[in-house]
Amino acid sequence: MTVIGSSGTPRSSAQTESRDIALEARDLGHAYGGREVLAGVDFQVRRGTFACLVGPSGVGKTTLLRCLSGLQSSTSGSVYVGGDIVNAPMPGVALVFQDYSRSLMPWSSVLHNVMLPLRANGISKQIARAKATRALALVGLDDVAGQMYPWQLSGGMQQRVAIARALAYEPSLLLMDEPFASVDAYTRADLEDLMLTLQRELALTVVLVTHDIDEAVYLSDQVIALNGRPAQVADIVEVPLGSARDQVTTKSTAEFAELRARVHGLVRGSRGKSS
């Protein structure tokens, strides 16, 4: 099991480091009924970095993200956010649900959907409205879309509303479950770059689940590959591509291709092992 800082790092220095760790899963396990989905999942995400979770469909990525968000209590092990153990959803943590469409309130306008978490956390109407409008603009949705009901928008637009809602909340830890699955390739590239920019500018910590290995490598500082049944961390691939990335040039470097192949092997490897 590869864990950051586990290469012979003594316990004491791991603890002094803990300020820099935004999120940690320690020996995390989860079972639905008697069926184990996750077992012994261990990883750390450094503050202000971008981590992607990859793994085959059904491996337990959503389950893991739900445990990390505090929505679901794990059946074994523990999760730490900013050094605090997670028993319930924590302040400053936002989640973009995989089922984005069902996660929006059909009775509220898009703008109000984005404003609601802010209002619920004591932010004034005016400020909430300004922040929501700005977040919607960031993901490419204008005032007209803001006045519509979410179900009046296309799937890709709804997905962007869900992203805007999380961004407007100004989390310090942002968890995203396949947030770009329904958008076209161009918008997807734009949103990827937007996430990279925001993550760098706001020093956000992002954990993003994706099926797309190119996307994972392009976005990440580290790619966490899950596989097996019950799922474990197969490996954690550090991505030293720097902070200035570009859809064309970054993806055409030899380093990118090599990292991509490595992650690919990790994800594919699970199939080979389990059959």
Binding site: L71, V93, S103, W107
Partner: peptide, 28 residues
């Protein structure tokens, strides 16, 4: 929709907020 209750938990709605922003409109 159960997911809406999860939304209210992640974004830490108070009970009252959840009641008036999710439960009542959802059941309306």
């Amino acid at each position: 929709e159960p997911l809406l209750n999860e939304v209210s938990r992640v974004f830490r709605f108070s009970r009252v907020r959840r009641l008036f922003s999710i439960v009542v409109p959802g059941a309306s």
